[in-house]
Design a protein around this nucleic acid. Structure first.
Lengths: 193, 193
DNA sequence: GGTTTATATGTCAATAGTGACTTAGGAGAA
DNA sequence: TTCTCCTAAGTCACTATTGACATATAAACC
């Protein structure tokens, strides 16, 4: 049997990408979205629950109710054959560049109006934050390289894919820290005021 | 007289940031949003026209109707004192990190399922696109450094701010190209398949 | 004993953003 | 002569996303 192409939203593919690795409840999925895919696709549980229901309606995921004594009952969602097939095809479809929206760059664009001292505080604070994020990513990188040393080279392993996504996170944060640093330097060594 | 703090949306501040440099019509503003601030804050004219009306209602911008013979009449919007004051304060207020949403990284996260050949095409194509964008930014950089050589060092000049925003664009695209290149290398030199 | 945190699944109103449609005149190309 | 593009300003329906509210149990903390 051939599997029918079913289109879903980008959020849907984000969820399928996580469920392709392991079956999860909506609650657990919300946690994964926060810690794992959060830096490149973010979603709250109020978006996740309805999206799971839609994916289930399209046959891309299925679920089983797991009854629990201590905790409330939960629905464990699993990706279906059709889900994997659709995710696989979507993964290599051409991606149109999405609009980047970065509020700090927007603030930088109006920085000429601001008090230099306050600008300095803002950018020093942002540099600190992005340094922290970078450090978190680098710790995960070290961990992955130690624990998954062989799998991260195999392009058919989900661990390679996780590692590849993390590499973008590291590159992004490094670039961000450098830019904040550059702005701070400009503000400190400016010729006017 | 003191100027009252009026809150607006991030889009509102994006518009104010452009109008603080020069008065423009809604149509022209849409063009500027596309070419100038587009890479860090994007908006269509269907968002811009209503937002301008709201900003006008809050007294942050004002407009004059300019009658034209050949072209349709237009409304030239100008930032007000209150607009500048509000923009100035917003510019150094702490910025909460907005969720980054990057579809390509999401695709990378599911790349382990895909056909390696198709993955290669996707990432080579993306590398090409980001190289092109980088080149466009670097041309603007060269132009700014030549034409605005002194002003880009003065932190009270709008040209410094434009240059600073551009620097982030350059850093972003450089990092993106490097990452695409790295993914392509991984796919070409993989040990499996 | 009361508060917060974690598990667990939802709904709902409001805002943000997209894409298509509308109207209208003139320019330039095929 | 028709078609497309540019200027100019909108509207509108739909989708995406957020933040708050709702409900329930148990553990851990103070």
């Amino acid at each position: 049997m051939t599997i029918r192409r079913v289109s879903t939203t980008t959020l849907g593919y984000a969820i399928l990408g996580v469920l392709a690795r392991e079956p999860l409840s909506g609650y657990e999925l919300a946690g994964r979205m926060k810690e794992r895919v959060g830096f490149f696709w973010h979603a709250r549980h109020s978006q996740i629950y309805p999206e799971l229901a839609r994916l289930e309606g399209k046959g891309l995921v299925s679920y089983q109710v797991v009854e629990q004594q201590v905790r409330p009952d939960k629905k464990i969602y699993e990706i279906t054959e059709a889900g994997i097939e659709n995710l696989k095809e979507w993964a290599t479809e051409p991606a149109e560049p999405r609009a980047v929206r970065d509020e700090l760059v927007l603030k930088a664009y109006s920085l000429w109006l601001a008090e230099p001292g306050e600008s300095l505080s803002l950018f020093r604070e942002q540099e600190r934050r992005h340094k922290e994020q970078l450090q978190r990513y680098e710790e995960i990188e070290t961990w992955m390289e130690r624990e998954w040393s062989s799998e991260i080279r195999k392009i058919s392993s989900p661990r390679f894919a996780s590692y590849a996504a993390l590499q973008r996170g590291i590159g992004y944060e490094r670039g961000y820290v450098d830019w904040c640093r550059w702005v701070v330097d400009q503000l400190e060594n400016s010729t006017d005021e």
